[in-house]
Amino acid sequence: MSTLVLLTLTGLGLGALYFLIASGLSLIFGLMDVLNFAHGALVTAGAYAAWRLTGHLPFAVAIAAAIATGAALAALIETVLIRPLYSRPKDQILVTVGLGLALPALVQGIWGADARQLQAPKQLAGTVSLLGARVPTDRFVLIAAAIVVLAALKLFLSRTRYGLVVRAGVEDRAMVTALGIDVRKAFTLVFAIGGALAGLAGALGGVYFGSVSPDQGTSLLVFGFVVVVIGGMGRTDGVALAAAAVGLIQQFTNYYAASGLGDFAAVAILAVVLLARGNRDGVRRLIRRAA
């Protein structure tokens, strides 16, 4: 039982991390059709910002700095590099690929290739006893952060004018401009939100893994992509569910099958989902027949 609880919360914690990364990716893609390969670099940037400040300043400040770093970097990338290329969608992806290569390499150049230990504050370093399991506190922090972000994103999308613009832009960007709205402001905003969440993911990921390294963001990005494809582009709820599912399946497979198989399981689910989607009609018919 205690193993089950620990695995579940660890899986959900990992899923929370995936959600923070995937929700930004999914929003950016949904609105702008930009597949952001630099997203992993934003995660890394956030992680290093948090690592630099931890120990010198309160941890909350370190987290805030990570968020700010991610948001500022993302807004800069959008306005300077992505914006001039809106008529060349493929080149936008290529530019993010270039950044995704260069930024982690730059981090490596400055702080070295080796992982740096991130000393989490005492409140996060301990464990909490729950149903007989001793669960590391940071799992709860991650899950709570993801829930807060999910709620905030939903509120933003449903209650604010910018959220309305974003939802409309996901459907038809050109028509939004034809209503007299400067959709580019929404682009920058969405990119910055994605960057902020990536920065947060970097900082919390540093706590979760206990260290930061230059390619940490990029390896998390892959699972971010898996989650986005499974959950559906531009669908926040779907992404949240998929993130939780992927995190849980990874942890459980790693524990009960073999270490390392969990990552495979995540990719295998992706394949199954894709095949099922390819044969959606067939699957629906099956379900109807079974019901």
């Binding site: 309305l164 409309a168 459907e171 050109a174 028509m175 401009t177 034809a178 007299g180 400067d182 959709v183």
Partner: peptide, 24 residues
């Protein structure tokens, strides 16, 4: 001018195929 600036000068546009936002 860009599209939104032109529209803000006072043009209402009902495009071909309507282009309403179906999910809204």
């Amino acid at each position: 001018l860009r599209t939104h600036e032109i529209v803000r000068r006072g043009i209402g546009y009902a495009p071909e195929d309507r282009c309403v936002f179906a999910k809204l």
